[in-house]
Amino acid sequence: MSTSFNLDEAVIFAENPEPRCPCVLLLDVSGSMSGPPIAALNEGLKAFQEDLNRDDLARKRVEIAIVTFDDRVQVVQEFVTADAFEAPTLETGGMTYMGAAIHTGLDLVRDRKAQYRTNGVAYYRPWVFMITDGAPTDEPGTMEKASARIRAEEDKKSIAFFSVGVEGADMERLQTVAVRSPLKLKGLSFQEMFLWLSASMQQVSQSRPDEQVALPSPAGWGEV
């Protein structure tokens, strides 16, 4: 035989949907976030969009949804892949309905997983990433139920829930919300935080079987 057999030209690849790496952002837009914090958060979201799109695999694999909360809980972005994501410009309002927002976020994840399964799309463990500068002001009981739900889903490895406190956040209260310890944002380094989140999502979305993903250090923007 000759070595001229060009497999590179002859072999055609199957087209399979990319495995998806879902990430829900739960963003506090209560009144206290108004002014520089919300402006920095909006800039951070833009950096998140741009950075994810620099990675050829991540832009097709990472899916973003955004839930905002003040006195109402709004899904401002349903799940969309990074290449179709356009960072919204958020505005601030009143109270901090954190518990209700957590329930909405976890519902989004549950429904998205069902859609993946129906369509035979492989997926990675979803991330829920909450940013707040206050303490929950939900109806009594809502926050406790939300916390219990986070714990149950972390136990089943259904999600990974991260929380970040902005200046003014009740860090002690936040400590009780989720399983993982909250991180305190240094000043308004939302940009650095979102670049970290983007880098982490790139790692996760390209991890292979049993790979314990080594996440980048959050030292540039957060402290325990």
Binding site: V11, I12, F13, A14, N16, P17, G120, A122
Partner: peptide, 15 residues
């Protein structure tokens, strides 16, 4: 993901 039609796992003939 190049060689099989997923999720059925059917071999992709042109591969």
């Amino acid at each position: 993901r190049l060689a099989l039609e997923l999720p059925s796992g059917k071999p992709f003939d042109p591969f």
